[in-house]
Amino acid sequence: MASSLQVVMDALPFILGGTVVTVCAVAIALGMGLVFGVPMAVAQVYGNGLARRCVGLYVWFFRGVPILVLLFLFYGLFVSCGLNPNPFLISCCVMGCTSTAYQSQIFRGAIQSLPQGQLKAARALGMHDAGAIRSIILPQAMRLSIPGWANEFSILLKDSAVCYVLGTQEIMSRANAVAARTHEHLAMFAVAGVIYFVLTVIVLALLRRLENAVQIPGYSTGNGMAGFECKG
Rank of each mutant, 00 (worst) to 15 (best):
M1V: 12
S3I: 14
S3N: 13
Q6G: 00
D10C: 00
A11M: 03
I15H: 05
I15C: 00
L16G: 02
L16N: 00
V21H: 06
V23P: 02
V23G: 00
A27H: 08
I28W: 09
A29Y: 02
M32E: 04
G33V: 06
L34A: 14
V35P: 00
V35N: 00
F36S: 05
G37A: 05
V38R: 03
P39W: 01
A41K: 03
V42G: 10
V45M: 05
Y46Q: 10
A51M: 14
A51P: 10
R52C: 07
R53L: 14
G56T: 06
L57M: 14
L57D: 06
V59C: 05
V59D: 04
V59K: 02
W60M: 12
F62H: 04
I67S: 10
V69E: 02
V69L: 00
Y75L: 01
V79P: 00
S80C: 02
C81D: 10
C81E: 12
G82D: 04
G82S: 05
P85C: 08
L89S: 02
A101Y: 09
A101S: 10
S104G: 07
S104D: 11
Q105M: 12
Q105W: 07
Q105N: 11
Q105D: 13
R108L: 07
G109R: 08
G109I: 09
Q112M: 15
Q116R: 14
Q116S: 14
Q118V: 04
A121W: 06
A124Y: 01
A124M: 08
A124C: 10
L125I: 03
G126S: 03
H128A: 13
D129H: 13
A130P: 01
A132S: 11
R134S: 14
I136V: 15
L138R: 03
M142Y: 10
R143Y: 04
S145N: 10
P147S: 12
G148N: 08
N151K: 03
E152G: 12
S154E: 12
L156Q: 13
L156P: 05
L157F: 06
L157N: 06
A161R: 09
C163R: 04
G167N: 04
T168P: 00
T168G: 01
E170N: 10
M172T: 15
M172R: 04
M172C: 12
R174A: 00
A175V: 05
A175I: 07
N176G: 12
N176R: 15
A177C: 03
V178Y: 02
A180F: 08
A180I: 06
E184K: 11
L186C: 08
L186V: 15
L186K: 11
L186F: 15
G193K: 09
V194I: 15
Y196P: 09
L199N: 01
L199S: 06
V203A: 07
L204T: 12
L204Y: 05
A205S: 15
A205M: 09
L206Y: 09
R208W: 02
E211A: 08
N212F: 10
A213G: 05
A213M: 07
V214W: 10
S220D: 07
S220G: 11
G222M: 15
N223H: 14
N223K: 13
G227D: 10
F228S: 09
F228W: 12
F228D: 08
E229H: 13
K231D: 11
G232L: 07
